[in-house]
């Protein structure tokens, strides 16, 4: 079996991603100090989603992987989201 050529990600890319991630962390700490009410949760989760997107894409190499692996990851997150939403069909309407 032939080994596929690996894409080598440069040190620089990783450093840039890390700096963005740290910046996003400080932003998320910052916005909790502003009175946003019910949007605070949404904001925090949105920033966390952006961060995890970066980790998945660059640190976990999804950007350089074959499409079917990306598809699998997206599928799993979608299933989990659907399960949460359906669970809340109970709690939200109780």
């Amino acid at each position: 079996m032939e080994n596929e050529k690996h894409h080598i990600v440069s040190y620089k890319t990783y450093t840039v991603i890390l700096l963005v991630l740290i910046a996003l962390t400080f932003i998320s700490i910052g916005i909790t100090n502003i009175e946003l009410g019910s949007f605070a949760v949404t904001g925090a989760l949105l920033l966390a989603s952006v961060k995890s997107f970066l980790v998945l894409t660059y640190f976990m190499h999804l950007k350089y992987d074959k499409p079917y692996i990306i598809l699998m990851v997206a599928f799993v997150f979608a299933v989990f989201l659907a399960v949460i939403i359906i669970t809340f069909f109970d709690y939200f309407f109780r």
């Binding site: 909790t32 966390a48 995890s52």
Partner: peptide, 18 residues
């Protein structure tokens, strides 16, 4: 990275909700 990914969600959900 998975361990990191989970912490990315744990941190705001536990520490940043006051």
């Amino acid at each position: 990275h998975l361990v990191d990914l989970i912490w990315i969600f744990l941190f705001p959900l536990f520490y940043l909700i006051s």
